[in-house]
Simulated scan of single mutants.
Amino acid sequence: MHFDLVDLGLFRHVVEAGSITRGAERAHLALAAASTRIRGMEEAIGAKLLLRTRLGVTPTAAGRTLLSHARTILAQAERLREDLGAFVGGLAGEIKVLSNTNALTGFLPEVLGTFLARHPNISVEIEERLSDEIVGLVAEGVAEIGIVAGTVETARLETYPFATDRFVVVAARSHPLAGRGSIPFAEVMGLDFVGLDRASALQRFLAVKAARAGRALRLRVQLRSFDAVCRMVEAGVGIGIVPETTARLAQKTSDIVVVALDDPWAVRDLTICLRSYRALAPSSRLLVDLMRDWQGRPPAPVGQ
């Protein structure tokens, strides 16, 4: 049997996305071409690699074996590219980072702006996930670097502190909450909310918190960015919950107020998690070094 790197990369993307269609998109292949490649791999092996259902695809036992080897081979190929890149214009490579919503919106843009300016031949792919999902995916080798909430159990992964932020409520200046200095999440669950798409990591996190209290959030509008949430909040559609770093930036251009959440989970220590710092690719090690040195200091208390 013969598989090239495109085959192996496609198969990894399909399994990680849980869909041949989304896997093909990630691999930059047409759906028909991707399906033909997967079928050819199954014929070469003589066994099914994927279980296909209405909900997507999952790997068979043979598929899981192939996935494990594919990740190893692809990582080695990437390491080879990086090592040779040092001889042809400097370090090169592609880094995959899994991040929770807080880090993705509040801290990573500035860090990555600095990193990419220093290393023009390195690219970074970022995927937003829930913190507990990130731990499992980093452990499996889906990505070398994860950024998670400090409260999440990271098992045997190596961890390093990154930054601290907190979730806050944003409301229009005319909203009844505008005069409050702080409020518990339980008091706002029955209000109209402006939120992110239900598939977003933060929205799923808040939905779980509400469900544990026997409630459901009243999402009036679902958007794709915190900036859009703050603009809709300013228009009086409802309240929102966003990272304080985002809320403070939005206050410069929007007429909104920021109200602290009293709940302990609202304060979020952000942690870098890895399988092994020593085993990181050179480009990934450079990014981790920058993040570890980054001064993600705790924000000042709300109202200051």
Rank of each mutant, 00 (worst) to 15 (best):
V57K: 11
G63D: 11
T246W: 00
K96G: 03
A266M: 10
P120N: 14
L274C: 08
I38A: 00
R218E: 11
K209S: 06
I241P: 03
A186Y: 06
A300T: 08
E125F: 11
R275E: 05
E187N: 13
Y160Q: 08
T151H: 12
G303Y: 07
A47G: 00
L286T: 14
A186G: 06
R12E: 03
V152Q: 06
T151D: 11
G89S: 05
T58P: 10
I134A: 15
L130K: 12
F193A: 13
I73R: 10
E82Q: 09
R12F: 03
D289A: 15
F115G: 08
L80A: 15
T101H: 07
R285I: 05
G150S: 11
F115V: 14
G195K: 08
F11T: 13
L67K: 14
Y277M: 04
I45L: 15
A92C: 14
S283Q: 14
E43N: 14
E125H: 13
A117N: 13
I272K: 10
H119E: 15
A61K: 14
D263L: 11
A27Y: 02
P109N: 15
G93L: 02
R156V: 05
G240E: 00
A260L: 05
L219P: 00
L55H: 15
I73C: 09
A279T: 01
P184G: 15
I126H: 01
T159H: 06
S123T: 13
S283T: 08
G23P: 07
L270H: 12
E234V: 04
P120T: 14
Y160F: 15
D165A: 09
C230Y: 04
A163F: 03
V258F: 08
